[in-house]
Amino acid sequence: MKSNQNPTSGTEVVSVDGLRVHYERAGQGPTVVLLHGSGSSLEGFERVAALLSSSYDVIRPDLPGFGRTGPRPDRDYRVGTYARTIARFMTALHVPHFAVAGNSLGGNIAWNLALDAPERVDGLVLVNATGYPGKSLPAGLRLARNPLLRPVLRRWLPRSATERGLREAVGPKSAIVNDAMVDRVHALTSRPGNRSAFVDFANTSQPDRSGEITRISTPTLVLRSAEIDGQHFARDIPNAQERVHPDGGHLLPEEYPDWVATAIAEFLRTKEERR
């Protein structure tokens, strides 16, 4: 599990589970891991990381199948597999315990990690996280599940589709979707193997572990946009705190990074003071 600098991207790289996991790390203090959502990359938490790094050791990986890390050789995109990979990733970085915050899929991975390795997770922040059945799917996942479109999407995705997906993912007052953002997301999505990995991920059968959520014992903060539906973490996790943003969309860490970073910092600071 050797870690080294990647000179072409500015990220660092560590070998885990046969993957070259790309990540960025900045700051000093207690460690916080930030996990992005599906179709995104470590840039999804860029501004949040910059704000937190004055007080924390902030680590942002590109999850397998996305960003610069690229597809898994075994094509296993179950959330439980993601959680085990992140645990081994943190072991490779010699970090025995940490807080973890995740957006969407990243939040799903985070709470699965808290269930499976509670001795390692000091704090849990779920940002528009997923994991309950019945949640409405974004357009990209719906398209990737269409048997007629799957072969096409493995080879080609128009930039216009990337832009449309981003605009659907943000709140009505958000102005963050511009040419630079669309170009960045589209370029990372178009890296070799990533489109096919997204189709594999979208068509992976995910075991329903929502009945186990009540067993989470890690101190938890739930950050949710008012328009996000069907998720009940604040109800089901004992003593969980919740904050709701009235205007945010699915990409809350990019739309309102100051709000997200402040909420995370206050939660972690309060948690430390209570120890």
Rank of each mutant, 00 (worst) to 15 (best):
V58E: 02
D122A: 15
G193D: 00
T204M: 05
I228H: 15
S190V: 10
W111Q: 14
R191K: 12
I213Q: 07
S190P: 08
G249Q: 03
L268K: 01
R274P: 14
V177W: 00
S160P: 05
V127D: 03
E227T: 13
L221P: 01
E273I: 05
K2W: 10
S225C: 13
H36C: 12
V260M: 08
N4Y: 08
H36E: 11
E46D: 12
S190R: 10
V14R: 10
V127K: 00
S160G: 04
F201A: 02
E168K: 04
R20G: 10
T204D: 13
I264Y: 03
D258R: 15
N4F: 13
A180W: 09
V244Q: 07
L51P: 01
V16M: 07
R159C: 12
L149I: 05
V121H: 07
A180M: 06
N239F: 09
V127L: 09
L148Q: 11
R159K: 09
E227C: 14
Y56T: 06
T69M: 01
R195S: 03
F201N: 06
K135Y: 11
L153N: 02
G106R: 01
P151K: 09
A240F: 06
R47I: 12
A101G: 08
S54L: 13
E273N: 10
G134T: 07
R191M: 12
R191C: 06
H186P: 02
A202F: 01
I109H: 10
R25L: 06
S40E: 11
T220K: 02
P253G: 03
F233H: 12
L221R: 06
G249A: 06
G211L: 00
R224D: 12
L223G: 02
E168M: 06
L42T: 12
L153E: 07
Y132C: 07
L149T: 01
I176A: 11
R72A: 06
G102M: 08
A144S: 07
M90A: 01
G67M: 01
T162E: 04
N146P: 15
G106T: 02
R120V: 08
P61V: 08
S160D: 00
L188F: 10
S190C: 15
L143G: 13
L153F: 05
T91W: 09
R224L: 14
P151D: 11
P172M: 07
V121D: 08
V182P: 04
N194C: 04
L42R: 08
N112A: 02
Q28R: 13
M90Y: 00
R60K: 15
R150I: 10
L42Q: 14
T85F: 02
T11G: 14
M181D: 06
G10P: 09
S196G: 15
R269F: 05
T11E: 13
R184N: 13
F198Q: 08
G37R: 03
A139Y: 05
G80W: 00
D116W: 10
L252F: 07
Y132N: 14
A240P: 01
Y56F: 15
H232Y: 14
